[in-house]
């Protein structure tokens, strides 16, 4: 009798069923990414608050205006960072293709697209390393800001502190994403996922990698465009 009384409950929560219809690890990856979104959100909001409470701010087009092998004193704003943005978008696309290949149990496709994603990640990190090095040689670092405000007045070190902290944090995420992808590549090559019968791990690594791309969308806009 008792069982018949409880029978007409909602289907999802009556047990014996996964209410979100996703695997445990994937769900937890989503919650981890949500917490990570709060971390980056806190950084960017802090940056915004400081920027709003300051009278002047450096012009990003004056600060980020060079690219590798450029002649001295070149004025090419936004050029190098657009290249970096496209590298990350394309590496995100190859990651989707790897996940897609995993759904079809296509090992060759997973390997090929993972390799492209890793190359994209390393290319992005190299670009960032060059940019940091370039800015360092211009005299910019934590606690030192050689750039003037947009209106020609003296600028505080807030600009460089936030720039290096936030892009550094993002770069570290890219680095860990590349390491995760390399581990995934090795596991794929060792037929780990073929034995398990599914490529769900690639999906989870993919979620992390897309998140890294997502954060860059915000960092790119906040530091380079506006």
């Amino acid at each position: 009798m008792a069982t018949t009384a409880t029978a007409p409950t909602t289907k999802s929560w009556s047990g014996g069923k996964s209410p979100f219809n996703v695997e445990y690890g994937k769900l937890m990856m989503w919650y981890f990414l949500m917490s990570d979104a709060f971390t980056f959100g806190a950084f960017l909001i802090s940056y915004g608050t400081i920027r709003f409470s300051t009278n002047g701010w450096p012009d990003p087009n004056e600060v980020f205006r060079s690219f590798p092998f450029a002649p001295e004193g070149v004025h090419a704003p936004l050029v190098f960072v657009s290249v970096m943005t496209f590298i990350l978008i394309i590496s995100s696309v190859t990651m989707v293709l790897a996940v897609h290949a995993g759904h079809n149990m296509d090992k060759k496709g997973v390997v090929k697209n993972l390799i492209w994603t890793i190359i994209g990640g390393i290319a992005f990190l190299s670009c960032q390393a060059w940019e940091w090095n370039h800015l360092f040689h211009e005299g910019a670092w934590w606690g030192s800001n050689p750039f003037l405000n947009h209106d020609g007045t003296a600028s505080s070190t807030n600009f460089t502190n936030y720039f290096f902290t936030i892009t550094g944090f993002h770069g570290f995420h890219v680095l860990s994403g590349v390491v995760i992808n390399i581990v995934m590549l090795i596991m794929t090559l060792m037929d780990k996922f073929e034995q398990r019968g599914h490529y769900l791990m690639i999906e989870k690594a993919g979620l992390y990698w897309h998140f890294v791309d997502l954060v860059w969308v915000f960092v790119f806009t906040c530091f380079y465009l506006i």
């Binding site: 909001i45 802090s46 915004g48 608050t49 400081i50 920027r51 709003f52 409470s53």
Partner: peptide, 8 residues
Amino acid sequence: FLYDGNSF
């Protein structure tokens, strides 16, 4: 936070 920054 942005309102606070601006007000400061």
